[in-house]
Nucleic acid binder design. Structure first.
Lengths: 166, 166
DNA sequence: CAAAGGTACTACGGTTCCGTAGTATCCCCG
DNA sequence: CGGGGATACTACGGAACCGTAGTACCTTTG
């Protein structure tokens, strides 16, 4: 029955990707619910922590978000007194972002919950984490390759200028 | 095996899930860019089409979105003249949603692009689609099991009604 | 050094998604 | 058949995300 699965969203591999993302989102939301940071906030704090005083542009790229989205987040983080700006030594357009002591404390506390979720998740993978990561990467590479393929050779259909791209 | 990967977001299985979701999102956005419907819209149209005149609540559940989110989408779809309401035979609180002829035409056209993306994607999976789906499901089940596990036995902390969920 | 073009961040508005509360209707029980 | 609770949708406002345009600064080029 695998032949042709038309527009059957619910029976498509694409839908499975969506569902997986939702499931992981729920796992993190549930685990970190009572903590000081939401999963999204934890990601931001982690990036700042890991990159060690990097610029907003670098941090946004690391997090896979647009710069403006990151700036929205950063505004909140700074508002909580969890991060501060350090002047960039040579480029006055930019600056570096670092966690304050309070920010590091919040990150540490959230990290405990994150690790708990990750551990519970990871321990339930029959083939182990490494195998799961590899499987996910194979699928991701297929999606990326398909994207590049289709982007470069559309189908030879007349190009509408506007479209409705999101 | 790299036993403890602390807060390393970029080297975590959780991050791979995020990245996969992004990659698939880009694939669909790219492929459907010049079509009549965005990927999100296509999903809505498909659900309406597949479920064949179902209620908003059913459709929202099918799509994995909140009812209010679906209503936002439905407002737009109706505004384009692509769907209409059919009185529910026995429940006057509700109604059924169906595509108009124009809606079906848009769906059909978007479906061609969707199929093209799916085909390109699927054909690049070394082990085939079925294997990929199974791998994803294994990971999803682990996430769901972990969620249930952690939700039922949190850490012995009282349940806060509000929290900061976003 | 001055002009031209690129880069980094900011300001602002729009879209999407969703939580809360309210209204209408239905269903269950007595 | 009447009350209480559940269910279906609507109204409303807020949060998150992002696109566009603007400003300041840097870099390249001649």
């Amino acid at each position: 029955m695998s032949g042709s699965n038309e527009g059957e969203l619910g029976t498509s591999l694409l839908f499975d990707v969506f569902a997986l993302d939702q499931a992981v989102g729920r796992l993190l939301a549930t685990t970190m619910r009572d903590g000081p940071l939401t999963p999204a906030e934890y990601a931001v704090y982690s990036a700042i922590f890991e990159l060690g005083a990097a610029s907003p542009t670098k941090l946004a790229a690391r997090l896979g978000m647009r710069l403006t989205t990151f700036m929205d987040q950063l505004r909140d983080v700074e508002g909580r007194g969890h991060a501060h700006r350090i002047a960039h030594p040579t480029d006055r357009r930019s600056y570096r972002v670092a966690l304050t002591a309070a920010g590091r404390a919040a990150h540490r506390e959230a990290n405990e919950r994150f690790e708990r979720a990750f551990e519970a998740f990871s321990s339930r993978l029959p083939e182990g984490e490494a195998a799961a990561r590899e499987a996910l990467r194979v699928v991701r590479r297929a999606a990326e390759a398909a994207t590049n393929d289709l982007a470069s050779a559309p189908v030879a259909s007349p190009r509408l200028p506007a479209g409705r791209a999101g």
